[in-house]
Nucleic acid binder design. Structure first.
Lengths: 159, 159
DNA sequence: GGCCGATAGTTAACATGTAAACTAAAAGGT
DNA sequence: ACCTTTTAGTTTACATGTTAACTATCGGCC
């Protein structure tokens, strides 16, 4: 193993140059892994992650919501929402109607079909979450959530 | 605030249904935030995140590397690499040559121009990392890295 | 030595995300 | 009332990622 460790010595200036960098890469990589799994599950129900997100946000809100408000809660940018909303409307999962008080805004909300689909997904999604992260102790996950939230606050702040 | 808390009571079954779900969403959201910032910085140097990743992996390896090995270290799938490699070759940042021992494999490595570009990016990238995550105590980041690694192990395992 | 499965990589078709320019309606100042 | 600015949303053009089908080469096996 002498040559292997020699090569390591040559090629690595230490695996990471800073804790921040390691955290950055770790978050991005973990996120990709998780998102892949989620996408795979949703595809079985003919939903993309974006479509699912929109539905989930609408349910969380509990009342009709302007398109751009939905976009604001995702990372996505306006034009992406326009398309996703089109798709969901054409599949009969949400309704879209022009607001009477401000004719610029279009309000969207789930149809009953959309609500049913979302309910059917609750169990599989929960069970995916458990199967993906269930092996991590809950205390660690709580700690993780705290730290991530702290991280996001700072990122949003220095806009 | 009576009506607000009433509405909350109606529309929320608690913000999350499980720690796992909260962690999942937290990771995905944080990752999106960070990736956006990184992409913005890289764009100023005419690089996409994928292109930068390929370059970084090649530098880390320290010797010519088959295309698919590079793909393996990213989340990406083969065809994506083909295109990214094309772009990098056409911009003179990497070299690509057919292996003599196995003519199926194409080895890629950074050109000196590529190495220079990468070096020029080191400082801005580090400084981005610090500006994005510098407000989180290092001990928290170390803990975060541990937990994320643990999470990834389990996810990879239950393939 | 010729077939057969596996592997490296590419091509093509398509869904998704992003940026920039545009339309329509509201808000506000004069 | 009119004109300018702002805001909600769409359209267009393009870069990126993903899947499936394909080519070329290797390796083993008979």
């Amino acid at each position: 193993m002498a040559s292997a460790s020699l090569r390591q010595q040559l090629k690595k200036r230490g695996p990471f140059e800073s804790v921040e960098q390691e955290a950055m890469l770790g978050i991005l990589k973990t996120s990709d892994l998780l998102e892949n799994r989620l996408a795979r599950l949703l595809r079985q129900h003919n939903l993309t992650p974006s479509q699912y997100n929109v539905m989930r946000i609408l349910r969380g809100e509990g009342q009709p919501m302007p398109c751009l408000d939905v976009a604001g809660r995702m990372i996505q940018v306006a034009p992406a929402i326009t398309r996703v909303v089109e798709q969901l409307v054409s599949r009969g999962l949400i309704d879209k109607r022009q607001s009477s008080s401000d004719r610029r805004v279009f309000l969207i909300e789930p149809t009953t079909a959309g609500q049913r689909l979302l309910s059917r997904l609750d169990e599989p999604i929960q069970s995916l979450h458990r199967s993906l992260l269930g092996h991590v102790p809950k205390s660690d996950l709580r700690r993780l959530n705290q730290i991530l939230e702290k991280a996001r606050e700072g990122v949003a702040a220095e806009a």
